[in-house]
Amino acid sequence: MKKHISELLNHPRTGHSHFEFVDINVLDDQELFIDPCLIEIQQGPWYSNATKLLDDFFNKFYEAYRNNDTPKKLELLSCAREINFTKLGYGKGDNGHGNTAEGLLVTFKNLENLTVSVPSIAKAMDLPVTIPGFNEDGLSDMITNILHLQMNTFTLEQLAIRNVQPNSEDTFDTWNLVSSSWEKVTAPCYRYENNKILLTPKNIVRKKYHFGANQFLMRVILERAKKETAYINPKGKIRYRTTKKELRFAIPKEDRNWKYKYINEESERDQSFLTDYHDAIPYLYSNKAMTDAELDKFIY
């Protein structure tokens, strides 16, 4: 059974070209995830402010890990757990230990050393690259909490466009840019069958991130290693003595987390790898937001 938010707003289900938000099925979860890179490359006040909030939170987050400040880590992670108001992600508690601050402490335990040995770790996108087992679902939940008030305001604005009034009130935690801390706020909201709904701008979701450990390994580390084997053949053309596939095959694979181990060792050896990756993101994500047609096919 499906019931899309457009139905609740008394709008004919004519597709995402008519909406600024993801037309979620409010009765189930959709395996879409908020992508911080898509937020960063979009133009407009909403995306600019969201980027500032994310940058501010993750500055404090990585600072706490560099200082090994456990009380601060727990404070930051206490409001970064699983959240289901957007009806995005896997939902149903599938994050395991990720839905508690203590569980996230375990997930991020390697950051205590990494943030010291690799100072270029600085952005939200760096977590799925360097931390085993932390992927789209966990990061999307963190982002939703950080942007909770901004997303709630966006939801109310979209309701107002369709002459629908908020029907409830909620008290929740959200990231405050002025105080650089969590703030508890009370604001009007929209509920369906007593479940709060947060609408998500359609331009910031994906089925799978374009960045991650494998992307970082292949596009940055092994790409550079391949280029170091370049030579000019007798016809004056650039050729390479090895391929990225061959380089990848040669990496020791002693356990299932070999990829993260190798990435982190290489990033520690050469601090420019992550910096280069940050610089490459706008190119990697150019025109990579889901189209209206792709969203229609996935949602409907």
Results as ranks from 00 to 15, higher is better:
residue 96 G to T: 01
residue 176 N to H: 14
residue 113 N to E: 09
residue 198 L to V: 10
residue 161 I to C: 06
residue 208 K to N: 11
residue 172 F to T: 09
residue 122 A to L: 12
residue 150 Q to D: 00
residue 167 N to H: 08
residue 205 V to W: 01
residue 155 T to Y: 03
residue 117 S to T: 10
residue 131 I to R: 05
residue 134 F to V: 15
residue 218 M to R: 13
residue 168 S to M: 00
residue 193 E to S: 12
residue 174 T to D: 04
residue 178 V to Y: 02
residue 159 L to V: 00
residue 130 T to V: 15
residue 161 I to E: 15
residue 214 N to G: 01
residue 172 F to N: 09
residue 97 H to E: 11
residue 99 N to V: 13
residue 98 G to Y: 02
residue 135 N to K: 14
residue 201 P to H: 00
residue 156 L to T: 07
residue 185 V to T: 08
residue 107 T to W: 01
residue 104 L to W: 01
residue 181 S to C: 10
residue 133 G to R: 06
residue 214 N to M: 05
residue 136 E to L: 09
residue 188 P to K: 07
residue 154 F to R: 11
residue 210 H to M: 14
residue 151 M to C: 04
residue 167 N to W: 05
residue 105 L to A: 00
residue 198 L to P: 07
residue 195 N to C: 04
residue 134 F to M: 13
residue 103 G to V: 07
residue 109 K to Y: 06
residue 138 G to D: 00
residue 131 I to Q: 14
residue 223 E to I: 05
residue 140 S to C: 13
residue 116 V to C: 06
residue 182 W to D: 08
residue 146 I to M: 07
residue 197 I to C: 07
residue 177 L to H: 10
residue 155 T to F: 04
residue 196 K to L: 13
residue 128 P to M: 02
residue 118 V to D: 06
residue 98 G to W: 04
residue 221 I to N: 10
residue 107 T to F: 08
residue 211 F to S: 13
residue 208 K to P: 01
residue 132 P to G: 11
residue 148 H to N: 13
residue 135 N to G: 13
residue 117 S to H: 10
residue 118 V to T: 12
residue 94 D to E: 13
residue 147 L to N: 03
residue 177 L to Y: 07
residue 223 E to L: 11
residue 164 V to N: 05
residue 160 A to Q: 12
residue 134 F to I: 09
residue 107 T to K: 13
residue 128 P to E: 01
residue 225 A to M: 14
residue 142 M to T: 12
residue 225 A to G: 05
residue 113 N to F: 06
residue 149 L to I: 07
residue 139 L to Y: 00
residue 132 P to E: 10
residue 161 I to Q: 14
residue 138 G to V: 00
residue 222 L to N: 10
residue 99 N to P: 01
residue 166 P to W: 02
residue 140 S to V: 05
residue 225 A to L: 15
residue 197 I to A: 08
residue 223 E to M: 10
residue 138 G to M: 02
residue 104 L to M: 15
residue 205 V to Y: 02
residue 123 K to W: 01
residue 134 F to R: 12
residue 147 L to C: 05
residue 98 G to T: 02
residue 197 I to E: 02
residue 126 D to S: 03
residue 124 A to S: 12
